[in-house]
């Protein structure tokens, strides 16, 4: 059986607990022990805590004031506009993805001519937006001197595809949506970045590029994410496209690209 080098080193120092080596190789919850046929209380409560944090991350309301303050503190000088999707509340949002993909009735946005629009969307983890959106936006913008960037849109009850009508309305050639990703048991604050060239309703996932797991210090940090995104943005602008085609063209990405 294959054993990576790290494990060989560890086995050379004999341990009374044969699980010590195995635990190093996985975050899976192995060797939890038992209370009868169930889990010991401490393990049971650990699991519940992880689930509770993830559930709360999904159901936290997006605090747009907090996002504005964080953007200002990070030195992002763009005007900020607020948009709500057609999903009026969280329960509807969760059951009707179609409503989260379009703006509420009567939404108007000022149309201009921009290289880029940035949409910050709560998605399935408003907490990820609260914690990581401003830092990510600041890192991206400082790498894009000379780009005309539209007013930044903060969107509530929003899915990735909301960026399509929003980007189109703003008159942007590319839209980047920063969105709270579905919380896992050990990652309730993960932000995803989605790039779409020529935003308009009807774009499909194959026409987008994604960078996942922006979540310092455990996942990608803002600089890594921004380096990757900017490489994709430049390639997208050059090719006039995004998505699978960008990968096929062999765009070289910095290490750590998701």
């Amino acid at each position: 059986m294959t054993t990576p080098e790290g494990a060989e080193v560890a086995t050379s120092a004999p341990s009374r607990d044969p699980w010590a080596v195995l635990r190093q190789a996985t975050r899976a919850r192995v060797a939890l022990g038992r209370a009868g046929d169930g889990l010991p209380t401490a393990r049971e409560l650990e699991f519940r805590a992880a689930h509770a944090v993830a559930r709360d991350a999904v159901h936290t309301a997006l605090d747009t004031g907090r996002v504005r303050a964080a953007l200002a503190a990070a030195g992002v000088g763009l005007d900020v506009l607020e948009v709500h999707s057609a999903a009026p509340d969280r329960a509807t949002y969760l059951q009707r993805p179609d409503l989260g993909r379009r703006p509420a009735e009567g939404t108007t946005l000022p149309c201009g001519s921009y290289d880029l629009a940035v949409v910050v969307a709560d998605g399935l983890s408003p907490r990820a937006v609260h914690e990581h959106a401003a830092g990510t936006v600041a890192a991206v913008l400082e790498r894009l001197p000379g780009w005309e960037v539209a007013p930044l849109v903060v969107a509530s009850q929003a899915r990735v595809a909301l960026g399509d009508p929003v980007g189109e309305a703003l008159g942007a050639r590319i839209v980047v949506v920063l969105v709270g990703e579905r919380p896992g048991l050990s990652s309730a604050d993960s932000l995803g970045l989605y790039l779409t060239w020529g935003p308009r309703p009807g774009r499909v996932d194959a026409e987008r590029n994604c960078i996942s797991n922006v979540r310092p210090p455990h996942g990608l940090d803002y600089a890594q994410a921004a380096d990757t995104l900017v490489a994709l943005l430049q390639a997208s602008r050059q090719l006039g496209a995004s998505g699978v085609v960008l990968k096929d063209e062999g765009v070289t990405l910095p290490p750590g690209a998701g």
Partner: peptide, 12 residues
């Protein structure tokens, strides 16, 4: 798909 990690879960 780390082989030791997968093995740990199989044995558990």
């Amino acid at each position: 798909d780390d082989p030791v990690g997968v093995t740990a879960s199989i044995l558990d």
